[in-house]
Each structure stands twice: as C-alpha cells, then as structure tokens.
C-alpha cells in the first residue's frame, strides 16, 4: 500500500503566482470607471448551481478557515451574479443601470476572491472548494428567490457583503500562514467597499460596524 500523500504546507510562491493574476485583473479594473460587463443576455440560462462539494474532511484547522473564505466568496459571487442575471431578464421589474452595474461588478470581484482562496488551497495540496458548501446557502438563496424589486437585491447585497467582510476580518486573526494573512488583508477591505456602496445606494447612513467580526461565520458553517 502506497503511503497517502501528505498535504504540503501552504506555499507562498504558489500563492504569489495566483496573486499576480489577480493583480492584473485589479489593474484593469482600476483603469476604468466604466461599468463592468453586464450579465448574460436575456434568454441565456444562468450557470447551474451546485450545493455539494468534494472529498469530505479535506479541510481542518487553519485550512478550514481558508476553505470558508473560498466557499463564502464563491457564494457571494454566485448570488450577486444570479441577481444581475435576473435583473437583465426582467425578474425584478425595472432595475436602474447603477444597480445592475453594482451587482455585476461586485459579483466579479467576489468570484476573483474565491479563485484566489482556492489557489491558496491548491498551493498547499488541498482540493479547491467547489460549489457553495455552507449551511447558510439555502437561506440566502431563498432570500434571492423571494426578491421582487431592486431594493431587495441591494438589501441582500448589503447583508451578504457584511457577512463576508466580517468573516474575512475574522480569518485575519485565525490564520498564521503569511500568504493567507496577506490575502485576507487584501480581500476584506474590498468587500467592505462593496458594502459601503450598497449602503449608499440604499440611502443608509455611512456607519462602519463597531465590532468588525460581528456576524462572522466560522468553519462550523462548512458542510464539507
């Protein structure tokens, strides 16, 4: 019987390769104030939703926090992307262009974050998180299904990005690997910016949470 391969320590080099690609995307985004590409045209079916994931017990200890980041960023990207697609299909009435642009733009960045978290897992020899294996996923998806107007979409986005920002801030203090700390440090403020924009569009006061980790998920929320 051959020995079971041991997961490698999280590789800073491998992670930095992934960060390079992300920095390229960031540079492109920073060069333009134009709205990002919109969602697929009406009639194009949304990408299938997967709610289960890969091999069980793949994520333990510090790695579980990284997997949590991947799963939650992926879920946020999927939900906001689905909201943008539904808006383009007329599911939510007349959706202002600023709301559609917000949903598409924030979704794209959440997806990029999920890819970065997964590259970090891969660099350590762990499987990437596929789907959205989180206990909170059905309730959040139900909230999107129940949305009827643009204001509902913005409310979902504000709450969802609040959860992601709090969780990523919590991850900063739970991991020790330098690459993981670096990624969490760079992701959290961007997600906070998503939240600030949603709050502005909703007309909410510009207050930041006094407890930055209030409402954060923990690895207990992972279903893999």
């Amino acid at each position: 019987m051959s020995p079971r391969p041991q997961p490698r320590p999280l590789s800073r080099r491998g992670f930095l390769v992934g960060l390079g690609a992300l920095a390229g995307a960031a540079g492109l985004a920073a060069c333009s104030n134009d709205a990002p590409p919109g969602p697929p045209a009406p009639g194009v079916p949304p990408s299938p939703t997967t709610t289960t994931s890969t091999a069980p017990a793949a994520y333990e200890g510090e790695v579980a926090w990284i997997a949590l980041g991947a799963a939650l960023s992926g879920l946020a990207g999927d939900l906001l992307g689905q909201a943008a697609t539904g808006a383009a299909q007329g599911r939510f009435g007349a959706v202002p262009g600023v709301v559609s642009a917000y949903l598409s733009g924030a979704a794209a960045q959440h997806v990029a974050h999920a890819e970065a978290w997964n590259r970090l897992l891969a660099a350590g020899g762990r499987p990437a998180v596929t789907g959205y294996p989180l206990t909170v996923e059905p309730a959040l998806r139900g909230r999107l299904d129940a949305a009827r107007a643009p204001i509902d979409l913005l409310g979902l986005a504000a709450d969802l990005t609040g959860t992601v920002a709090a969780t990523v801030t919590r991850i900063v203090g739970e991991v020790t690997d330098a690459s993981a700390v670096t990624l969490a440090a760079g992701v959290g403020p961007v997600v906070a910016m998503h939240g600030a924009t949603a709050d502005f569009l909703l007309g909410r006061p510009p207050t930041a949470p006094t407890d930055p980790v209030a409402g954060a998920l923990t690895p207990d929320a992972l279903t893999v």
Partner: peptide
C-alpha cells in the same frame, strides 16, 4: 440621501471598488 437610483450613472455603482485586492 437617498440617491435617485434612476438618475445615477451606472459607473456610480462600481467606482467605489476599483481594485480586486486592496492596494
């Protein structure tokens, strides 16, 4: 406050988060 969502330019929805990772 609140803003007129129908009057805002689409770019106002994304100008607040220009970077994928915070620089």
């Amino acid at each position: 406050v609140p803003p007129d969502l129908l009057a805002l330019p689409p770019g106002a929805g994304t100008v607040g988060f220009p970077d994928v990772l915070f620089p």
